[in-house]
């Protein structure tokens, strides 16, 4: 199948860029995600006594409408951090608050986009996108109607009845994104969502994500391995260091929005990227 990731982008409604005033009006004010001294250890198998100190005393505040990217060497605990915020795994100590309330499990205010897409192979695009709504017990007609809107938003109109394996990687992740957006969460948690997608498609997906994010400016916590991606998308980049996983530094990205490919050609962009690389390369052990 030819790459369909570029289809129908131009048929999309133009991204209405919300001005700061209207966003502030919709805002509830306080921080969206707060981590206070969060630590997490993984116990080894029963056979061994090795424990992994995955996260150590992580403190972090993510404000509403903020786009945060997390970057760091492999194994520094990025996925663990995300899964804790998602409420998928417990943490040992500290506090994790979402909208001021402690996290005890997954909740309707958060939705996750997975690196491996995690689409149900037996379900059509429409059914996959409606899955999150289905878990919430929303009747079929209603959830499918909402799902169709999101399918259009991510540019997959016409593919509603396809099965995932008949889609390219980029299209599959569009489904994953639509599924997360369909439940209308306040927070999007994305774990290397474009990590398994080829370079060309990834660039298109980044622009698409920025475009879609522009509608609503949901709060996003986005894990990545790519420095371009981290800088291009983020308001702030969280730089993590490994063993144990710590917040090494937080880097502001004061580049103007809306951003696009032109942004990457600016001097400021390159400077921030280089700064990031300087800090990352000293952590790289190999």
């Amino acid at each position: 199948m030819t790459d369909m990731t570029a289809v129908s982008t131009e048929t999309q409604p133009p991204a209405p860029w919300p001005d700061d005033a209207s966003l502030a009006a919709a805002s509830h004010g306080g921080p969206m995600i707060e981590l206070r001294g969060v630590s997490k250890e993984f116990l080894g198998d029963r056979s061994s006594t090795t424990t992994t100190h995955a996260l150590d005393n992580i403190s972090l505040t993510v404000n509403e409408h903020e786009f945060i990217t997390v970057i760091g060497p492999s194994g520094c605990g990025k996925t663990t951090l995300l899964r804790i915020v998602a409420g998928l795994i417990p943490y040992d100590s500290g506090q994790v608050l979402v909208k001021g309330k402690p996290v005890t499990g997954p909740g309707p205010d958060r939705a996750v986009v997975f690196q491996s897409f995690a689409l149900l192979p037996w379900a059509t695009v429409l059914e996959n996108v409606a899955f999150g709504l289905e878990t919430r017990g929303i009747p079929r007609a209603e959830r499918e109607e909402q799902a169709r809107v999101l399918i259009k938003t991510v540019g997959l109109a016409g593919f509603e009845s396809r099965l995932p394996r008949h889609l390219s990687g980029g299209m599959q992740q569009r489904v994953g994104l639509a599924r997360a957006l369909a439940v209308n969460p306040d927070i999007l948690l994305m774990d290397e969502p474009f990590g398994a997608i080829d370079e060309q498609t990834r660039r298109i997906m980044q622009e698409e994500l920025l475009r879609i994010w522009g509608y609503r400016r949901k709060t996003v916590l986005f894990v990545t391995h790519s420095m371009e991606e981290a800088v291009l998308l983020a308001d702030r980049v969280i730089l993590m260091s490994p063993r144990p996983g710590r917040v090494h530094e937080i880097i502001d990205v004061p580049l103007p929005r809306p951003r696009g490919r032109e942004t990457e050609r600016t001097r400021e962009f390159t400077d921030i990227k280089e700064l990031l690389w300087d800090k990352l390369r000293v952590m790289q052990t190999v």
Partner: peptide, 29 residues
């Protein structure tokens, strides 16, 4: 059954019964 599927369903707040019905059973079919 792919644990990623189960984790995905958990992340969307699916109940245990829902996961069995909508993920485990079709996946093992």
């Amino acid at each position: 059954v792919d644990p990623a599927m189960v984790e995905m369903a958990r992340a969307f707040g699916a109940s245990e019964a829902f996961i069995i019905r909508k993920v485990m059973i079709p996946a093992s079919m």
